[in-house]
Write a protein that binds this DNA or RNA. Structure first.
Length: 703
DNA sequence: CTCTAAGAGATTTTT
DNA sequence: TCTCTTAGAG
C-alpha cells in the first residue's frame, strides 16, 4: 500500500512524505510537486501510520486550495477524509468560534463581515463621531485596525500614541471594536484574533486541541502573517508535528502582512536543521527555468534553492519592444493567433500584467478580434450589490440587531426612508441600543415609516420558519421586494439572474451540508466570495495580474508592461524590501509558463492621462542573453538605442542634488524629445525635471 | 430621493 | 484618461 503511494516520487519528495517525527519545513519551488507532497503525506499518515483522520489539521490560504487538497487526498486513499480539519485559516477559526462562541464572548449568531462591510462600518463610525474623513481616510483606518489585529494587538494593548493623529486612530479602533460587539459582527482578522485569544486564555480548551491535533500541515507557509504563526504555535503545543510547505521565492503578499521571516522562525522555534528542498521542476522548459533562476538569484534574503529540470531547453524567451501600448496589445493578438494556428487552446494562453489597469486595452483588442477571453479580478459573486442586499435581509432575519444589515436595506427597495429619517433613528439609538430596538420605541411620523420595514422583516421571519433553506432565500428575494425592484431597473437583467443563482447556491449548500443553519450559509458567503475565474470548460484566453496567476500554469504566457515604474512598480521602490518582492513577483510570473514565454515592454505608454516614456524594466537585464530572443523592435522607435535603467549616466535610485530642492533620489527616467527625470526630494517631494533646463548634480553616497 | 457634475486618485488583495 | 465617490440641485 505504501509502495503505491510513494511510487513516482523523487527522493526529496519521498523523504518529506515519509518523515517520521519532528517538524519539517519543505522548501518547494514552483512546479516541484508541492501539492502532491502535501496530499501524499496526509494519505501516508492515514494509511501507513494509521493516524486517525480527526488528529490531522491541514491549513491552506484559499478555499480552492483546500478543496483541491481534500479531493486529492480522497483520491489517494479511496475514501472520504471525514473528521479531518481541512480548510483555510479563516474557515477553521470560524468553525472553532461557532463551536465555542460562548467562551469566545461572541453572540451565537455572529455574522462575518468582509472588507467591503468593514469599510462601511468604519464610515458609519466616522460619521457618528463627527470625524473628518479627509484627515482620516477610511482606507487608512481600515489598514490600521487590520494591521494591528494581525499583529495580535487590541486597542488597549497599543503603545500610547504621541501625536493627535495616532491617538485618534487608536480611539477609532476602540470604537470600531465596540460597534462590532454591539452589531454582533466579526471581521476577517477578528476570526483569527478571537480564536487565538481564546486558545491562549483557556487552558483546558487549548490542551484539548493540542492533544487532538497530532499533525499540523500548512500550505503556502511563506504567506502566513504574525498572528497565523502564533495561532499555529499555540495549537502545536510542545510535541505536535508541524509540517510546513512553502516557497520564500514566491512570497508576494508582504504588503498584506505576510511575513517571509516566519520560515526562518519556524526552523528556529522547532529545531529544524535543514529545510527539505524540492528543486526538480516538472513544469517548464530549461530556458524558462534558467530565466527564473537568474532573476531570483539577485535577491539577497533567500533560503536558497535552484530549480532544475530533465526537460529540454526548449524555445528561447521572446522579447518584444513595442513603440506604445497599442502596439504591444497588437503584438499579443498576433502571437495569440499564431498559437491558435498551432492548435493550442485559448485557455492554455495567459496574459499577465502587473496592475489591473493594463487589462482594458488588451480586452479591447481581443474583443475587436473576436477572440474569447476571461478577465480575472473585479467583483465576485457574493460581493455583488444585489447579492449583498439579499444577504442583508437574511442577516436581519437571523439577527435584527445587525445594524450594518439594517442600514444596508432599510431603504432598498426605496420605501421613503431617507438619510434624514435614518439619522434621527441613529440619534435616538445613541449607540446604546440597536437600530431595530429603537424602532419600536420611536413615536411620531418617523416611526410609521420604520414600522413598514420592521413589519416586513417580522413577516419574513415568520414565513421562513416553516421553510427549508433554499425556499427561505427564495422567499426573502421575493418578499423583500428586491426581485421586483431589479425587475424594473433598466439594466437589472443580470442582477435578477444573480438573485436566482443565489437561490441555487443556497439549495446546493443545504444539499451538501444538511442540517447546517442559515448562519453557516451566510458565513460561507462571506468567507468564500466565489470564483474569479473562467467557467469550467470555457475556452478563453486568460487575463490576470501576476498575483492572481500564482499557483496556475499555462502552455504559453505573455508578460506585458516590463517597464520601470510599472514592473517593478514605482511605489515598490520606496517600500522596505519592495524591490525584492517585485522580483519574486517576476519569478512567479515566469514560472507560470510550461513551454513559451513572451515578454514585452512599450517605449511610450499613456498612463494617468499623460504620455510617458518608460525605460525598459531592469529585470529584463537579469535574464541571460543566450535564452532571450528579441523578436520585434518598434517600427518607429522614439529612442533609437533603448537604454536600460540608466540614461546619460543617470540611474534610478541614484541620489542627486538640486540647487533649490536639495537632496533627493531618482524615481524614474524618461526619454522622449529630451531626457526627463522624476526625483523624489527629501524636502519637496516628487518633481519632474527636464535635463535641458534643470541643473542637478550627482551626490556621493555616504549613508 | 435620484440624478448629474465635479473632484480625487489611480499596485498587488488568497480570507 | 478613466473610474469611483461625494456634494448639490432638481
Amino acid at each position: 500500500m505504501s509502495d503505491s503511494l510513494l511510487a513516482g516520487l523523487n527522493p526529496p519528495q519521498r523523504h518529506a512524505v515519509t518523515l517520521e517525527q519532528g517538524s519539517a519545513l519543505v522548501l518547494a519551488g514552483a512546479g516541484s510537486g508541492k501539492t502532491r507532497v502535501l496530499t501524499t503525506r496526509i494519505a501516508w499518515l492515514l494509511q501507513v501510520k494509521q493516524v486517525p483522520a480527526y488528529r490531522i489539521l491541514a491549513v491552506t490560504f484559499t478555499n480552492k486550495a483546500a478543496r483541491e487538497m481534500q479531493t486529492r487526498i480522497e483520491g489517494l486513499i479511496g475514501q472520504s477524509c471525514r473528521g479531518m480539519w481541512i480548510g483555510t485559516f479563516h474557515g477553521l477559526c470560524h468553525r472553532f468560534l461557532r463551536q465555542h462562541w460562548r467562551d469566545a464572548g461572541l453572540a451565537q449568531n455572529f455574522a462575518i463581515i468582509d472588507m467591503q462591510d468593514q469599510l462601511s462600518a468604519i464610515k458609519r463610525l466616522l460619521k457618528q463621531h463627527n470625524i473628518d474623513s479627509e484627515r482620516y481616510p477610511l482606507k487608512q483606518i481600515q489598514f490600521f485596525i487590520n494591521q494591528n489585529k494581525e499583529q495580535g494587538l487590541r486597542p488597549q494593548q497599543l503603545p500610547p500614541a504621541h501625536d493627535v493623529y495616532g491617538k485618534q486612530l487608536q480611539q477609532l479602533y476602540l470604537a470600531y471594536q465596540a460597534q462590532c460587539e454591539q452589531e454582533h459582527t466579526v471581521d476577517f482578522a477578528e476570526l483569527l484574533l478571537r480564536s487565538y485569544e481564546l486558545l491562549a486564555a483557556h487552558a483546558a480548551l487549548r490542551e484539548h486541541y493540542q492533544q487532538r491535533f497530532a499533525h499540523l500541515l500548512i500550505d503556502e507557509f511563506q504567506d502566513t502573517n504574525a498572528l497565523q504563526y502564533r495561532w499555529l504555535t499555540l495549537l502545536s503545543g510542545s510535541d505536535n508535528q508541524i509540517f510546513a510547505v512553502g516557497d520564500d521565492d514566491q512570497s508576494i503578499y508582504g504588503f498584506r502582512g505576510a511575513e517571509i521571516g516566519n520560515m526562518r522562525r519556524l526552523m528556529q522555534d522547532y529545531a529544524i536543521e535543514q529545510p527539505i528542498k524540492l528543486e526538480q521542476n516538472y513544469r517548464s522548459t530549461g530556458a524558462i527555468l534558467q530565466a527564473a533562476n537568474a532573476v531570483i538569484a539577485r535577491n539577497q534574503q533567500r533560503l536558497g534553492k535552484q530549480l532544475w529540470t530533465e526537460a529540454a531547453e526548449g524555445a528561447p524567451l521572446k522579447l518584444f519592444q513595442a513603440n506604445n501600448e497599442q502596439n504591444e496589445a497588437e503584438h499579443v493578438l498576433e502571437q495569440v493567433r499564431a498559437l491558435r494556428q498551432q492548435a493550442l487552446p485559448y485557455s492554455e494562453i495567459a496574459v499577465l500584467y502587473r496592475s489591473n489597469a493594463q487589462s482594458r486595452l488588451l480586452e479591447h483588442h481581443l474583443f475587436q478580434a473576436g477572440i474569447p477571453y476571461r478577465v480575472y479580478g473585479g467583483l465576485r459573486f457574493f460581493e455583488r450589490q444585489e447579492i449583498k442586499h439579499a444577504l442583508a435581509y437574511l442577516r436581519l432575519i437571523l439577527d435584527p440587531d445587525d445594524d450594518a444589515a439594517f442600514l444596508r436595506v432599510v431603504n432598498v427597495p426605496a420605501r421613503g426612508i431617507g438619510s434624514r429619517s435614518v439619522e434621527q433613528l441613529q440619534q435616538f439609538a445613541q449607540q446604546q441600543q440597536s437600530l431595530w430596538q429603537s424602532c419600536s420605541q420611536l413615536t411620531g411620523r418617523v416611526a410609521s415609516k420604520f414600522l413598514t420595514f420592521t413589519l416586513l422583516i417580522e413577516r419574513l421571519q415568520e414565513a421562513c420558519q416553516s421553510l427549508d433553506f433554499a425556499s427561505q432565500v427564495e422567499a426573502v428575494v421575493k418578499g423583500s421586494g428586491l426581485r421586483e425592484f431589479y425587475g424594473q431597473e433598466k439594466e437589472g437583467r443580470e442582477r435578477l439572474d444573480n438573485l436566482d443563482e443565489l437561490v441555487n447556491a443556497a439549495a446546493l449548500f443545504s444539499q451538501t451540508n444538511p442540517e447546517w443553519p442559515l448562519a453557516d450559509f451566510l458565513a460561507h458567503a462571506a468567507l468564500e466570495a466565489g470564483e474569479h475565474g473562467a467557467k469550467p470548460g470555457e475556452d478563453a484566453v486568460q487575463l490576470m495580474t501576476v498575483h492572481a496567476a500564482k499557483g496556475l500554469e499555462f502552455h504559453s504566457v505573455f508578460l506585458v508592461g516590463l517597464e520601470e515604474s510599472l514592473f517593478p512598480h514605482e511605489n515598490a521602490l520606496s517600500e522596505h524590501s519592495g524591490l525584492e518582492e517585485e522580483r519574486r513577483l517576476l519569478y512567479v510570473a515566469l514560472t507560470r509558463a510550461r513551454q513559451q514565454l513572451f515578454l514585452s515592454h512599450a517605449q511610450a505608454r499613456f498612463l494617468h492621462g499623460q504620455m510617458r516614456y518608460p525605460l525598459r524594466s531592469r529585470f529584463v537585464d537579469d535574464i541571460p542573453a543566450n535564452i532571450l530572443q528579441t523578436i520585434g523592435v518598434a517600427r518607429s522607435p522614439i529612442a533609437p538605442h533603448m537604454p536600460h535603467t540608466a540614461v546619460d549616466g543617470w540611474f534610478i535610485g541614484q541620489t542627486v542634488e538640486h540647487p533649490v530642492f536639495g537632496c533627493g533620489s531618482i524615481a524614474q527616467i524618461e526619454r522622449g524629445q529630451s531626457v526627463r527625470i522624476h526625483v523624489n526630494f527629501v524636502q519637496h517631494g516628487l518633481k519632474w525635471l527636464d535635463l535641458r533646463f534643470a541643473s542637478i548634480t550627482p551626490r556621493q553616497i555616504n549613508r
